[in-house]
Nucleic acid binder design. Structure first.
Lengths: 199, 199
DNA sequence: CGCGTGATTGAAACCCTTCAAGTTTAGTGG
DNA sequence: CCACTAAACTTGAAGGGTTTCAATCACGCG
Protein backbone atom coordinates (compact mmCIF):
# COMPACT_ATOMS: atom_id res chain seq x y z
CA UNK A 1 0.00 0.00 0.00
CA UNK A 2 1.15 3.47 -0.84
CA UNK A 3 1.22 6.32 1.68
CA UNK A 4 0.60 3.96 4.52
CA UNK A 5 1.79 6.42 7.14
CA UNK A 6 -0.78 9.06 6.33
CA UNK A 7 -3.59 6.54 6.00
CA UNK A 8 -2.76 5.08 9.38
CA UNK A 9 -2.66 8.56 10.80
CA UNK A 10 -6.10 9.35 9.45
CA UNK A 11 -7.65 6.15 10.68
CA UNK A 12 -6.07 6.60 14.11
CA UNK A 13 -8.04 9.86 14.21
CA UNK A 14 -11.25 8.13 13.16
CA UNK A 15 -11.13 9.46 9.64
CA UNK A 16 -12.11 6.43 7.58
CA UNK A 17 -11.67 6.92 3.87
CA UNK A 18 -13.64 4.98 1.25
CA UNK A 19 -12.24 3.68 -2.00
CA UNK A 20 -12.81 6.84 -3.95
CA UNK A 21 -11.08 8.92 -1.32
CA UNK A 22 -8.19 6.51 -1.24
CA UNK A 23 -7.90 6.85 -5.00
CA UNK A 24 -7.70 10.61 -4.64
CA UNK A 25 -4.89 10.21 -2.15
CA UNK A 26 -3.03 7.71 -4.33
CA UNK A 27 -3.24 9.90 -7.39
CA UNK A 28 -2.49 13.26 -5.78
CA UNK A 29 0.01 12.64 -3.04
CA UNK A 30 3.74 12.53 -3.53
CA UNK A 31 6.29 10.87 -1.35
CA UNK A 32 9.88 12.02 -0.90
CA UNK A 33 12.93 10.98 1.01
CA UNK A 34 15.00 13.90 2.15
CA UNK A 35 18.32 13.85 3.89
CA UNK A 36 19.45 15.85 6.90
CA UNK A 37 19.82 19.58 6.21
CA UNK A 38 17.91 19.37 2.94
CA UNK A 39 15.71 22.40 2.41
CA UNK A 40 12.07 21.93 1.37
CA UNK A 41 10.99 25.56 1.36
CA UNK A 42 13.06 28.71 1.13
CA UNK A 43 12.32 32.25 2.24
CA UNK A 44 10.88 34.19 -0.69
CA UNK A 45 9.54 31.11 -2.45
CA UNK A 46 5.90 30.27 -2.76
CA UNK A 47 4.88 27.42 -0.49
CA UNK A 48 3.02 24.88 -2.62
CA UNK A 49 2.74 21.95 -0.25
CA UNK A 50 1.75 20.89 3.19
CA UNK A 51 4.30 18.34 4.35
CA UNK A 52 3.34 15.35 6.44
CA UNK A 53 6.23 13.75 8.26
CA UNK A 54 6.06 9.97 7.96
CA UNK A 55 9.51 9.50 9.41
CA UNK A 56 12.17 11.84 10.69
CA UNK A 57 12.01 15.44 11.82
CA UNK A 58 11.57 18.79 10.08
CA UNK A 59 11.78 22.33 11.34
CA UNK A 60 10.44 25.68 10.17
CA UNK A 61 12.45 28.82 10.85
CA UNK A 62 12.88 32.42 9.82
CA UNK A 63 16.02 34.49 9.36
CA UNK A 64 15.62 38.11 10.36
CA UNK A 65 17.43 41.17 9.02
CA UNK A 66 20.33 40.64 11.44
CA UNK A 67 20.85 37.16 10.04
CA UNK A 68 19.52 35.43 13.13
CA UNK A 69 17.52 32.24 12.92
CA UNK A 70 14.33 31.70 14.90
CA UNK A 71 12.69 28.32 14.90
CA UNK A 72 8.92 28.50 14.61
CA UNK A 73 8.03 24.83 14.75
CA UNK A 74 9.41 21.33 14.94
CA UNK A 75 7.54 18.58 13.09
CA UNK A 76 8.32 14.99 14.10
CA UNK A 77 6.50 11.89 12.90
CA UNK A 78 2.76 12.36 12.27
CA UNK A 79 2.89 16.13 12.19
CA UNK A 80 1.97 18.46 9.39
CA UNK A 81 4.13 21.42 8.58
CA UNK A 82 3.83 24.19 6.02
CA UNK A 83 3.62 27.93 5.67
CA UNK A 84 -0.15 28.31 5.72
CA UNK A 85 0.12 31.98 5.05
CA UNK A 86 2.00 31.46 1.80
CA UNK A 87 0.01 28.36 0.91
CA UNK A 88 -3.40 29.95 1.10
CA UNK A 89 -2.72 33.57 0.31
CA UNK A 90 -0.05 32.96 -2.30
CA UNK A 91 2.39 35.47 -0.85
CA UNK A 92 6.11 34.85 -0.63
CA UNK A 93 7.06 32.73 2.31
CA UNK A 94 8.96 34.28 5.20
CA UNK A 95 10.19 30.93 6.38
CA UNK A 96 12.42 28.01 5.60
CA UNK A 97 11.46 24.38 6.09
CA UNK A 98 14.36 22.01 6.49
CA UNK A 99 15.07 18.43 7.50
CA UNK A 100 16.71 18.06 10.89
CA UNK A 101 17.12 14.31 10.32
CA UNK A 102 16.93 12.08 7.27
CA UNK A 103 13.19 11.98 6.73
CA UNK A 104 10.34 10.56 4.71
CA UNK A 105 7.65 13.03 3.91
CA UNK A 106 4.34 13.07 2.10
CA UNK A 107 3.39 16.14 0.07
CA UNK A 108 -0.17 17.49 0.00
CA UNK A 109 -1.23 20.13 -2.45
CA UNK A 110 -3.78 22.45 -0.92
CA UNK A 111 -6.38 21.31 -3.45
CA UNK A 112 -6.08 17.80 -2.12
CA UNK A 113 -7.35 18.94 1.25
CA UNK A 114 -10.25 20.68 -0.46
CA UNK A 115 -11.14 17.65 -2.55
CA UNK A 116 -11.09 15.34 0.43
CA UNK A 117 -13.14 17.81 2.44
CA UNK A 118 -15.80 17.79 -0.25
CA UNK A 119 -15.83 14.01 -0.41
CA UNK A 120 -15.91 13.40 3.32
CA UNK A 121 -17.53 15.42 6.09
CA UNK A 122 -15.41 13.43 8.51
CA UNK A 123 -12.27 14.62 6.84
CA UNK A 124 -13.64 18.12 6.70
CA UNK A 125 -14.17 18.04 10.44
CA UNK A 126 -10.73 16.66 11.01
CA UNK A 127 -9.23 19.39 8.90
CA UNK A 128 -11.01 21.98 11.02
CA UNK A 129 -9.71 20.22 14.09
CA UNK A 130 -6.16 20.51 12.78
CA UNK A 131 -6.61 24.22 12.14
CA UNK A 132 -8.03 24.87 15.57
CA UNK A 133 -5.34 22.82 17.18
CA UNK A 134 -2.72 24.81 15.35
CA UNK A 135 -4.29 28.03 16.56
CA UNK A 136 -4.35 26.78 20.12
CA UNK A 137 -0.70 25.91 19.84
CA UNK A 138 0.27 29.31 18.47
CA UNK A 139 -1.78 31.05 21.12
CA UNK A 140 0.02 29.17 23.88
CA UNK A 141 3.33 30.08 22.36
CA UNK A 142 2.47 33.77 22.26
CA UNK A 143 1.38 33.62 25.84
CA UNK A 144 4.64 32.05 26.82
CA UNK A 145 6.78 34.50 24.87
CA UNK A 146 4.93 37.40 26.47
CA UNK A 147 5.24 36.29 30.04
CA UNK A 148 7.77 33.54 30.74
CA UNK A 149 11.46 33.80 31.57
CA UNK A 150 14.12 31.77 29.78
CA UNK A 151 14.07 29.15 32.51
CA UNK A 152 10.29 28.82 32.48
CA UNK A 153 10.28 28.46 28.71
CA UNK A 154 12.85 25.73 28.87
CA UNK A 155 10.93 23.83 31.54
CA UNK A 156 7.79 24.08 29.43
CA UNK A 157 9.69 22.76 26.46
CA UNK A 158 10.96 19.77 28.40
CA UNK A 159 7.43 19.04 29.57
CA UNK A 160 5.80 19.41 26.18
CA UNK A 161 8.43 17.99 23.85
CA UNK A 162 10.62 15.59 25.81
CA UNK A 163 11.12 13.51 22.68
CA UNK A 164 12.25 16.41 20.50
CA UNK A 165 14.64 17.60 23.20
CA UNK A 166 16.69 14.45 22.68
CA UNK A 167 16.73 14.65 18.91
CA UNK A 168 17.90 18.18 18.18
CA UNK A 169 21.09 20.07 19.07
CA UNK A 170 20.77 22.39 22.00
CA UNK A 171 21.17 25.52 19.94
CA UNK A 172 17.96 24.65 18.09
CA UNK A 173 16.07 24.44 21.37
CA UNK A 174 17.51 27.85 22.26
CA UNK A 175 16.41 29.18 18.90
CA UNK A 176 12.89 27.84 19.46
CA UNK A 177 12.76 29.43 22.91
CA UNK A 178 13.95 32.78 21.61
CA UNK A 179 17.18 32.88 23.61
CA UNK A 180 20.86 32.46 22.76
CA UNK A 181 22.64 29.09 23.04
CA UNK A 182 24.82 30.60 25.75
CA UNK A 183 21.80 31.57 27.79
CA UNK A 184 20.29 28.12 27.48
CA UNK A 185 23.54 26.60 28.61
CA UNK A 186 23.47 28.77 31.72
CA UNK A 187 19.82 28.03 32.36
CA UNK A 188 20.59 24.33 32.28
CA UNK A 189 23.51 24.81 34.62
CA UNK A 190 21.34 26.69 37.11
CA UNK A 191 18.66 24.03 36.96
CA UNK A 192 21.24 21.31 37.53
CA UNK A 193 22.50 23.17 40.61
CA UNK A 194 19.00 23.54 42.00
CA UNK A 195 18.19 19.89 41.49
CA UNK A 196 21.46 18.89 43.13
CA UNK A 197 20.66 20.98 46.19
CA UNK A 198 17.03 19.99 46.59
CA UNK A 199 16.91 16.49 45.09
CA UNK B 1 -33.25 44.42 9.61
CA UNK B 2 -31.62 42.58 12.47
CA UNK B 3 -27.88 41.99 12.72
CA UNK B 4 -27.22 44.34 9.90
CA UNK B 5 -23.57 44.77 10.79
CA UNK B 6 -22.70 41.12 10.39
CA UNK B 7 -24.72 40.76 7.21
CA UNK B 8 -22.96 43.73 5.68
CA UNK B 9 -19.68 42.26 6.75
CA UNK B 10 -20.46 38.97 5.06
CA UNK B 11 -21.62 40.54 1.84
CA UNK B 12 -18.57 42.80 1.75
CA UNK B 13 -16.59 39.57 1.70
CA UNK B 14 -18.68 38.14 -1.11
CA UNK B 15 -20.58 35.79 1.15
CA UNK B 16 -24.12 36.12 -0.10
CA UNK B 17 -26.68 34.40 2.12
CA UNK B 18 -30.04 33.19 0.87
CA UNK B 19 -33.29 33.41 2.78
CA UNK B 20 -32.85 30.19 4.66
CA UNK B 21 -29.41 31.18 5.79
CA UNK B 22 -30.67 34.57 6.87
CA UNK B 23 -33.34 32.83 8.91
CA UNK B 24 -30.67 30.76 10.63
CA UNK B 25 -28.83 33.94 11.51
CA UNK B 26 -31.95 35.70 12.75
CA UNK B 27 -32.94 32.80 14.95
CA UNK B 28 -29.56 31.90 16.37
CA UNK B 29 -27.65 35.13 16.79
CA UNK B 30 -27.85 37.35 19.81
CA UNK B 31 -27.04 40.99 20.05
CA UNK B 32 -25.73 42.76 23.14
CA UNK B 33 -24.71 46.21 24.17
CA UNK B 34 -21.84 46.24 26.61
CA UNK B 35 -20.31 49.15 28.38
CA UNK B 36 -16.65 49.99 28.85
CA UNK B 37 -14.82 47.59 31.16
CA UNK B 38 -17.60 45.01 31.03
CA UNK B 39 -16.24 41.47 30.96
CA UNK B 40 -17.58 38.98 28.40
CA UNK B 41 -15.37 36.02 29.24
CA UNK B 42 -13.44 35.25 32.39
CA UNK B 43 -10.39 33.08 32.97
CA UNK B 44 -11.54 29.62 34.06
CA UNK B 45 -14.92 29.89 32.38
CA UNK B 46 -15.94 27.96 29.33
CA UNK B 47 -16.04 30.13 26.22
CA UNK B 48 -19.41 29.57 24.55
CA UNK B 49 -19.45 32.30 21.95
CA UNK B 50 -17.52 33.90 19.18
CA UNK B 51 -18.05 37.64 19.45
CA UNK B 52 -18.38 39.84 16.41
CA UNK B 53 -17.79 43.51 17.09
CA UNK B 54 -20.42 45.61 15.35
CA UNK B 55 -19.35 48.77 17.14
CA UNK B 56 -16.70 49.57 19.72
CA UNK B 57 -13.58 47.74 20.75
CA UNK B 58 -12.84 44.56 22.72
CA UNK B 59 -9.63 43.07 23.96
CA UNK B 60 -8.51 39.59 24.98
CA UNK B 61 -5.87 39.22 27.67
CA UNK B 62 -4.37 36.76 30.11
CA UNK B 63 -3.21 37.24 33.68
CA UNK B 64 -0.17 35.19 34.59
CA UNK B 65 0.84 33.81 37.99
CA UNK B 66 2.57 37.08 38.91
CA UNK B 67 -0.67 38.93 38.34
CA UNK B 68 0.52 40.59 35.15
CA UNK B 69 -1.77 41.22 32.24
CA UNK B 70 -0.80 40.44 28.68
CA UNK B 71 -3.04 41.51 25.85
CA UNK B 72 -3.41 38.87 23.16
CA UNK B 73 -5.66 40.67 20.73
CA UNK B 74 -7.64 43.81 20.09
CA UNK B 75 -10.92 43.51 18.20
CA UNK B 76 -12.34 46.71 16.70
CA UNK B 77 -15.35 46.93 14.39
CA UNK B 78 -15.78 44.00 12.02
CA UNK B 79 -13.48 41.69 13.90
CA UNK B 80 -14.23 38.36 15.50
CA UNK B 81 -12.84 37.52 18.88
CA UNK B 82 -13.11 34.42 21.06
CA UNK B 83 -11.03 31.81 22.78
CA UNK B 84 -11.00 29.21 20.02
CA UNK B 85 -9.19 26.78 22.22
CA UNK B 86 -11.90 26.82 24.86
CA UNK B 87 -14.68 27.10 22.30
CA UNK B 88 -13.76 24.03 20.31
CA UNK B 89 -12.04 21.84 22.84
CA UNK B 90 -14.25 22.73 25.76
CA UNK B 91 -11.39 23.37 28.16
CA UNK B 92 -11.38 26.21 30.65
CA UNK B 93 -10.38 29.46 29.10
CA UNK B 94 -7.04 30.99 30.01
CA UNK B 95 -8.16 34.41 28.89
CA UNK B 96 -10.45 37.31 29.61
CA UNK B 97 -12.42 39.19 26.98
CA UNK B 98 -13.41 42.71 27.93
CA UNK B 99 -14.85 45.86 26.39
CA UNK B 100 -12.34 48.68 25.98
CA UNK B 101 -15.13 51.01 24.82
CA UNK B 102 -18.90 50.90 24.99
CA UNK B 103 -19.62 48.34 22.30
CA UNK B 104 -22.27 46.51 20.36
CA UNK B 105 -21.52 42.89 19.78
CA UNK B 106 -23.11 39.94 18.05
CA UNK B 107 -22.81 36.51 19.62
CA UNK B 108 -22.25 33.38 17.54
CA UNK B 109 -22.55 29.93 19.03
CA UNK B 110 -20.07 27.55 17.46
CA UNK B 111 -22.93 25.45 16.05
CA UNK B 112 -24.09 28.47 14.07
CA UNK B 113 -20.85 28.45 12.13
CA UNK B 114 -21.26 24.77 11.45
CA UNK B 115 -24.84 25.12 10.29
CA UNK B 116 -24.00 27.96 7.96
CA UNK B 117 -21.03 26.03 6.63
CA UNK B 118 -23.29 23.14 5.75
CA UNK B 119 -25.80 25.39 4.06
CA UNK B 120 -23.30 27.41 2.08
CA UNK B 121 -20.00 26.38 0.52
CA UNK B 122 -19.25 30.06 0.17
CA UNK B 123 -19.57 30.56 3.88
CA UNK B 124 -17.55 27.43 4.49
CA UNK B 125 -14.75 28.86 2.41
CA UNK B 126 -14.98 32.15 4.18
CA UNK B 127 -14.77 30.44 7.53
CA UNK B 128 -11.62 28.67 6.40
CA UNK B 129 -10.28 31.99 5.23
CA UNK B 130 -10.87 33.46 8.68
CA UNK B 131 -9.06 30.58 10.33
CA UNK B 132 -6.09 30.85 8.01
CA UNK B 133 -5.97 34.55 8.44
CA UNK B 134 -5.95 34.14 12.17
CA UNK B 135 -3.07 31.69 11.91
CA UNK B 136 -1.13 34.07 9.71
CA UNK B 137 -1.65 36.78 12.25
CA UNK B 138 -0.51 34.64 15.16
CA UNK B 139 2.51 33.46 13.21
CA UNK B 140 3.58 37.04 12.52
CA UNK B 141 3.20 37.88 16.17
CA UNK B 142 5.40 34.96 17.24
CA UNK B 143 7.99 36.01 14.75
CA UNK B 144 7.96 39.50 16.11
CA UNK B 145 8.17 38.43 19.74
CA UNK B 146 11.10 36.18 18.94
CA UNK B 147 13.17 38.69 17.08
CA UNK B 148 12.16 42.32 17.49
CA UNK B 149 13.23 44.87 20.09
CA UNK B 150 10.74 47.03 21.99
CA UNK B 151 11.21 49.87 19.53
CA UNK B 152 10.71 47.66 16.49
CA UNK B 153 7.57 46.16 17.98
CA UNK B 154 6.14 49.58 18.62
CA UNK B 155 6.89 50.75 15.08
CA UNK B 156 5.22 47.63 13.71
CA UNK B 157 2.21 48.31 15.89
CA UNK B 158 1.90 51.86 14.60
CA UNK B 159 2.11 50.61 11.03
CA UNK B 160 -0.37 47.79 11.46
CA UNK B 161 -2.90 49.30 13.85
CA UNK B 162 -2.76 53.09 13.55
CA UNK B 163 -6.46 53.28 14.37
CA UNK B 164 -6.24 51.21 17.54
CA UNK B 165 -3.25 53.21 18.73
CA UNK B 166 -5.50 56.24 19.09
CA UNK B 167 -8.28 54.42 20.88
CA UNK B 168 -6.55 52.63 23.73
CA UNK B 169 -4.47 53.86 26.67
CA UNK B 170 -0.75 53.53 26.21
CA UNK B 171 -0.36 50.92 28.87
CA UNK B 172 -2.54 48.59 26.81
CA UNK B 173 -0.27 49.03 23.83
CA UNK B 174 2.67 48.21 26.10
CA UNK B 175 0.86 45.14 27.36
CA UNK B 176 0.21 44.01 23.78
CA UNK B 177 3.87 44.51 22.89
CA UNK B 178 5.05 42.57 25.92
CA UNK B 179 6.87 45.47 27.59
CA UNK B 180 6.18 47.70 30.60
CA UNK B 181 4.38 51.05 30.27
CA UNK B 182 7.57 52.76 31.46
CA UNK B 183 9.56 51.15 28.68
CA UNK B 184 7.06 52.18 26.06
CA UNK B 185 7.17 55.72 27.35
CA UNK B 186 10.94 55.74 26.93
CA UNK B 187 10.75 54.16 23.49
CA UNK B 188 8.41 56.92 22.41
CA UNK B 189 10.70 59.54 23.82
CA UNK B 190 13.68 58.12 21.92
CA UNK B 191 11.69 58.00 18.70
CA UNK B 192 10.59 61.59 19.16
CA UNK B 193 14.23 62.63 19.63
CA UNK B 194 15.31 60.80 16.51
CA UNK B 195 12.55 62.32 14.41
CA UNK B 196 13.41 65.75 15.72
CA UNK B 197 17.04 65.35 14.72
CA UNK B 198 16.47 63.81 11.29
CA UNK B 199 13.15 65.25 10.19
C1' DC C 1 45.04 12.97 13.76
C1' DG C 2 42.98 17.47 12.91
C1' DC C 3 39.13 19.92 11.68
C1' DG C 4 34.48 21.68 12.40
C1' DT C 5 30.51 21.90 15.03
C1' DG C 6 28.34 22.28 19.33
C1' DA C 7 28.54 23.27 24.29
C1' DT C 8 30.40 25.75 28.17
C1' DT C 9 32.25 29.59 30.79
C1' DG C 10 33.67 34.39 31.94
C1' DA C 11 33.46 39.43 31.71
C1' DA C 12 31.46 43.41 29.96
C1' DA C 13 27.66 45.63 27.78
C1' DC C 14 22.93 46.31 26.86
C1' DC C 15 18.11 46.35 27.14
C1' DC C 16 14.43 46.24 29.81
C1' DT C 17 12.31 46.11 34.43
C1' DT C 18 11.49 47.65 38.98
C1' DC C 19 10.56 50.95 42.31
C1' DA C 20 9.72 55.53 43.56
C1' DA C 21 8.55 60.17 42.71
C1' DG C 22 6.60 63.70 40.10
C1' DT C 23 3.67 65.49 36.27
C1' DT C 24 -0.14 65.48 33.22
C1' DT C 25 -4.67 64.18 31.83
C1' DA C 26 -9.40 62.90 32.33
C1' DG C 27 -13.51 62.25 34.77
C1' DT C 28 -16.82 63.49 38.67
C1' DG C 29 -19.39 66.09 41.83
C1' DG C 30 -20.24 70.41 43.92
C1' DC D 1 -17.16 75.80 35.39
C1' DC D 2 -14.01 74.99 38.77
C1' DA D 3 -12.00 71.83 42.26
C1' DC D 4 -10.74 67.46 43.44
C1' DT D 5 -9.32 62.91 42.66
C1' DA D 6 -7.86 58.89 40.33
C1' DA D 7 -5.68 57.14 36.52
C1' DA D 8 -2.32 57.53 33.08
C1' DC D 9 2.02 58.99 31.65
C1' DT D 10 6.79 60.50 32.38
C1' DT D 11 11.32 60.51 34.39
C1' DG D 12 15.29 58.95 37.22
C1' DA D 13 18.28 55.60 39.46
C1' DA D 14 19.32 51.01 40.57
C1' DG D 15 19.05 46.17 39.53
C1' DG D 16 18.26 41.88 36.87
C1' DG D 17 18.23 38.98 33.07
C1' DT D 18 19.95 38.17 28.65
C1' DT D 19 23.19 39.10 25.00
C1' DT D 20 27.61 39.71 23.09
C1' DC D 21 32.23 38.59 22.33
C1' DA D 22 35.97 35.78 23.20
C1' DA D 23 38.27 31.84 24.85
C1' DT D 24 38.15 27.05 26.01
C1' DC D 25 36.55 22.42 26.06
C1' DA D 26 34.26 18.14 24.13
C1' DC D 27 33.10 15.29 20.53
C1' DG D 28 32.46 12.90 16.09
C1' DC D 29 33.92 12.19 11.52
C1' DG D 30 36.64 12.20 7.38
Amino acid sequence: MMFEAIKNYFSSHSVILNEEQNRVLDSELQQRKVSKDEVLLRQGENCKYTFFVAKGLLRAFTINQNGKEHILQFAPENWFISDRSSLLFGDNSKQFIEAVEDSEIILFESETFEKLSELSPEFQKFNMFLLHNHIRHLQNRINQLLSATAEERYMDFIRMYPDILLRVPQWMVASYLGITPESLSRVRKDLAMKNFKTG
